[in-house]
């Protein structure tokens, strides 16, 4: 298996690279996971949350930044 050997040589062989890629990956994973779960959440609760009904109430001048 070329792919698995590539993976092993690229990431796992040296512990420093393994550990640092875990920490880097943790940040990336955190972002991706939050994005994915929040998207699911907004989809599940479509039309109920404030961000869905906000457009009805903001004044066209749009001076609010809250």
């Amino acid at each position: 298996m070329a792919l698995t050997d590539t993976l092993y040589n690229a990431l796992f062989r040296r512990n420093s690279i393994f550990v640092s890629s875990i920490f880097v990956g943790a940040f990336g994973f955190g972002l991706a996971f939050d994005t994915a779960t929040n998207r699911f959440w907004d989809n599940w609760n479509k039309g109920k949350q404030w961000k869905d009904i906000r457009d009805k109430y903001v004044t066209p001048a749009g001076a609010d930044e809250e």
């Binding site: 298996m1 092993y8 875990i22 940040f27 994973f29």
Partner: peptide, 27 residues
């Protein structure tokens, strides 16, 4: 029959645990 697959898979699982753990710890 495929030790390199097994090796990569095991490291992957260990790494995934570290990754999830680090992510949870960070949060």
């Amino acid at each position: 029959e495929n030790p390199s697959m097994n090796r990569a898979f095991s490291y992957f699982m260990v790494g995934s645990m570290g990754l999830l753990g680090a992510s949870a710890a960070k949060a």
